[in-house]
């Protein structure tokens, strides 16, 4: 269980007929770490995440997940231990009911039906959707759909949780619920986000991407205070002081 780390060694990647999107990424995330992946639009965050469970394979370099090098042959193993929550939850909800969606992963893993049911119940419960089993996805609110999408991954009991923009379009309460769900996940978490406050709260460590490279790897709080131009763009520290800020001594 202690081997659930993620390691990228000199990973290069380009989409067909496109320029290089990942240009030599090196990183190591060890077991139990919660890490934020920050970067401006188009810097390559989503592309990097898709390498972790082999939905995209590097054109050069190597990705290793918990002692298993990610390749065509190891996809099945890797995908069982990496739970991926996509940018758009609607893409993850395609079965007639939420319950079936959450059961999809465990059933693919070939678990017995009683175990599948137990996991579906537990996963829905943990995201605050107990009793929603029979509801079709389109009848849920945006926040509930996000929660259901996360449940559909938690039911596989992954060792590594990878999330792409999980807090987009959530209201304050749904966002708070989401933060609690992620904070309660004791294994490894890698989180791509523009929500820097959530990153500060959940992830002690942050990686900053720019134009396909990791340009910073530091404590999140330190980055937030940085005056570096990229960090300033991400944390929006160039903004004027808020009007309602309490007067400081």
């Amino acid at each position: 269980m202690s081997h659930h780390y993620i390691r990228f060694s000199d990973v290069h990647f380009s989409y067909p007929h496109g320029p290089e999107v990942l240009c030599g990424v090196d990183l190591l995330i060890t077991h139990g770490e919660h890490v934020a992946l920050l970067g401006l639009n188009g810097s390559g965050k989503s592309t990097l995440l898709l390498q972790i469970n082999g939905l995209l394979l590097p054109s050069r370099g190597e990705v290793v997940v918990g002692d298993i090098p990610v390749s065509k042959k190891t996809l099945r193993l890797v995908r069982q231990s990496v739970g991926m929550v996509f940018q758009n939850s609607d893409d993850m909800l395609f079965m007639p009911t939420i319950g079936e969606d959450v059961a999809f992963g465990p059933r693919n893993m070939g678990l017995p039906e009683t175990e599948v049911e137990r996991r579906v119940g537990a996963a829905l419960e943990s995201v605050g959707l107990a009793g929603f089993e029979d509801r079709p996805a389109f009848s849920l609110s945006g926040g509930q759909r996000r929660a259901a999408a996360i449940a559909s991954v938690l039911s596989m009991e992954p060792d590594i949780l990878v999330l792409d923009e999980p807090s987009a379009n959530l209201d304050a309460r749904a966002r708070r619920q989401l933060i609690d769900i992620i904070a309660g996940f004791s294994h490894t978490v890698l989180l791509a986000t523009h929500d820097t406050e959530m990153a500060l709260e959940l992830c002690p460590r942050a990686l900053v991407m720019d134009a396909g490279r990791i340009v910073a790897d530091a404590p999140t709080a330190l980055l937030a205070a940085s005056t570096d131009s990229i960090a300033a763009g991400i944390f929006d520290t160039a903004r004027p002081a808020p009007i309602l800020a309490p007067a400081s001594n």
Partner: peptide, 15 residues
């Protein structure tokens, strides 16, 4: 893609 990520291998699991 989202199905593949959850271990889909070409056959729908039957309930």
């Amino acid at each position: 893609r989202a199905m593949l990520a959850r271990g889909f291998d070409g056959t729908m699991p039957l309930s």
